[in-house]
Simulated scan of single mutants.
Amino acid sequence: MVANTGLPTGNAKVSKAFSAWRDFSIQSEQFPIGDIVNGGSLGRLSQATIDAYSSPFPDDIYKAGARIFPTLVPISPDYPAHQDNLATWETLFKFVKPVLCAFSDSGPITKGERRSL
């Protein structure tokens, strides 16, 4: 199953929403995980749910992976993951088993990406 994700190679322009997310991950002094998840949700999450998303990250040292992740996504062909993602696409083009592909029509980062599959 593939859901609300992508396998960018850096050959296509990224969305404004992704660029904003990437910039926020680099520049923001605060990185409130639960609030970030809430902001990417279609409806408002309860405070208990927001707190549950935040709970594995008691302080900033635990947020390093979440904070750095957007900067690892290839936004140009000179990114280290460019070749790996190209190779993965080549493998996927040969994949012949059924795949369930689900994308939200309202996700701020990935909406419309299903068109590129």
Rank of each mutant, 00 (worst) to 15 (best):
M1P: 03
M1S: 15
M1T: 11
V2I: 10
V2Y: 01
A3C: 15
N4G: 06
G6M: 13
G6I: 05
P8H: 06
P8F: 12
G10H: 07
A12K: 11
A12G: 00
V14G: 00
V14A: 07
K16A: 14
A17E: 05
S19V: 04
F24K: 05
F24E: 03
S25P: 05
S25D: 02
Q27H: 01
S28H: 02
E29F: 11
E29K: 13
E29G: 11
P32M: 00
G34E: 13
G34V: 12
D35G: 03
N38C: 11
G40F: 13
S41G: 07
L42G: 14
G43R: 15
G43L: 15
G43D: 00
R44L: 15
S46P: 03
A48W: 01
Y53R: 03
S54E: 15
S55G: 00
S55T: 01
F57V: 08
F57G: 06
P58D: 05
D60N: 05
I61W: 01
I61S: 11
K63C: 09
K63Y: 09
A64Q: 13
G65K: 08
A66H: 07
I68N: 04
I68W: 09
F69E: 10
P70S: 06
P70H: 01
P74D: 00
I75Y: 08
S76L: 04
P77A: 05
D78E: 14
D78Y: 13
D78P: 00
Y79H: 09
Y79V: 05
H82Q: 06
H82G: 01
Q83Y: 08
Q83V: 01
N85L: 10
A87L: 09
A87R: 13
T88R: 10
E90C: 03
T91H: 10
T91W: 08
L92Q: 07
L92C: 08
F93C: 14
F93A: 05
K94H: 09
V96L: 09
K97G: 03
P98Q: 06
V99L: 13
V99I: 12
A102G: 08
A102W: 12
F103K: 05
S104R: 12
D105T: 15
D105H: 03
D105C: 06
D105Q: 12
S106E: 02
G107F: 15
G107L: 15
P108K: 08
P108G: 06
K111Q: 10
K111T: 07
G112W: 10
G112K: 07
E113K: 14
L117Q: 04
